[in-house]
């Protein structure tokens, strides 16, 4: 009603401003629509590609490609025997070395359920490294569940402390974008990189488990715990991802614990009846060969686990573990 009383100049001014405001609102809406990303942030967001990292190769060429297989119930003895068969820990760890141990602490579950690396193996491996003269031994993982709960409830945290090693919990600032040269999935993807910075030896320790998606979770799948971000998107292409992890992460030594094997309902299990006492521990420098042997504990072959064949074809190792002439020891015999 008031507008009817406005002088002509004010009416024109009002209309002019109204049109201007409308244009601003419309422009803002169009700008927002143009910038709207219905798919959300992708893996390449974060550090720009030119800042993306590649990882060092932690293998020791002089150690060759070898594996040792030990049959026995006592994890610590089995580990000691397996490492001795490969030339002793001194063949891998030299005085002053800085060592990172990558465990599987994925779930906040007790050791008895076999879903995570057994703390006895963590403690003993760290002790062996320190005994061999390592100046620094750290243990890390980026678990699926809350990291603090995982390291506490799996017993790994206490094992690390009692061995005199360092525990590195994943935090935002420890991740950097990494790229696998030639890779199609691991491109500018957040990787738990800081714990790897400055170490010159990398050891992986993990249990043998059934895995609902990939068929098995062993040494190569354990490297998944180095990834950050929305890594579950990789579940749709899990075999290709594990192959890329096999090419990205080149460890010094790996230990696969088949003292008990999670035969069903992996990777979490939950019941003791998911586990089978298989009394086997494997150590080696060829992760693909170690996993290929580990598959036999699950009653599977590399043909059942496409990631193994892919990793072999990509040059990450061999599934023909017998060709490496494994050193076998039976502790119970």
């Amino acid at each position: 009603m008031e507008s009817a009383d406005l002088p002509g100049e004010d009416r024109r001014e009002f209309l002019r401003r109204l049109a201007g405001t409308g244009a601003v609102v419309l422009g803002t809406g169009l700008l927002g629509y143009g910038l709207y990303d219905p798919e959300g942030p992708g893996p390449t967001q974060g550090n720009p590609p030119e800042e993306s990292l590649t990882l060092p190769n932690y293998t020791m060429p002089e150690a060759g490609r070898r594996i040792s297989i030990v049959y026995g119930e006592d994890r610590i003895r089995a580990l000691q025997t397996a490492v001795t068969a490969l030339g002793g820990i001194e063949a891998f760890i030299k005085k002053g070395d800085r060592v990172l141990i990558k465990v599987n602490a994925a779930f906040a579950m007790p050791p008895v359920l076999g879903a995570t690396t057994h703390p006895d193996l963590v403690r003993e491996t760290a002790r062996l490294c320190l005994q061999a003269g390592a100046s620094y031994v750290a243990v890390t993982d980026n678990p699926i569940n809350d990291p603090s709960s995982c390291f506490a409830l799996t017993g790994i945290g206490e094992a690390v402390r009692s061995a005199g090693a360092q525990l590195i919990l994943p935090r935002e600032k420890l991740f950097s974008s990494a790229t696998l040269p030639g890779g199609s999935l691991i491109r500018n993807w957040p990787l738990l990189y800081e714990p790897l910075r400055g170490v010159n030896k990398l050891i992986g320790i993990t249990p043998v488990k059934d895995h609902h998606r990939s068929g098995a979770s062993m040494v190569l799948k354990n490297w998944y715990g180095f990834l950050g971000g929305r890594r579950n998107v990789f579940h749709q292409n899990i075999h290709e991802l594990i192959k890329e992890l096999a090419l990205l992460i080149r460890p010094t030594l790996v230990v696969l614990d088949g003292t008990t094997t999670m035969m069903t309902n992996g990777p979490t299990g939950g019941s003791l009846s998911d586990l089978k006492r298989t009394h086997t521990l494997i150590a080696g420098t060829d992760p693909v060969a170690v996993d290929a042997f580990g598959a036999t504990l699950l009653g599977r072959s590399p043909r059942d686990l496409p990631f193994l064949l892919k990793a072999e074809a990509a040059g990450a190792g061999t599934v023909d573990f017998e060709s490496l002439q494994p050193l076998r020891t039976n502790l119970s015999g």
Binding site: N145, H212, R213, N232, G266, P267
Partner: peptide
């Protein structure tokens, strides 16, 4: 012993990883 944790279809894999598909 701990507070309750809640997971949706988008976050279930943060609890049970690969078994989420099931």
């Amino acid at each position: 012993m701990s507070p309750v944790e809640t997971f949706t279809p988008e976050t279930l894999s943060e609890k049970i990883n690969g078994k989420a598909e099931l």
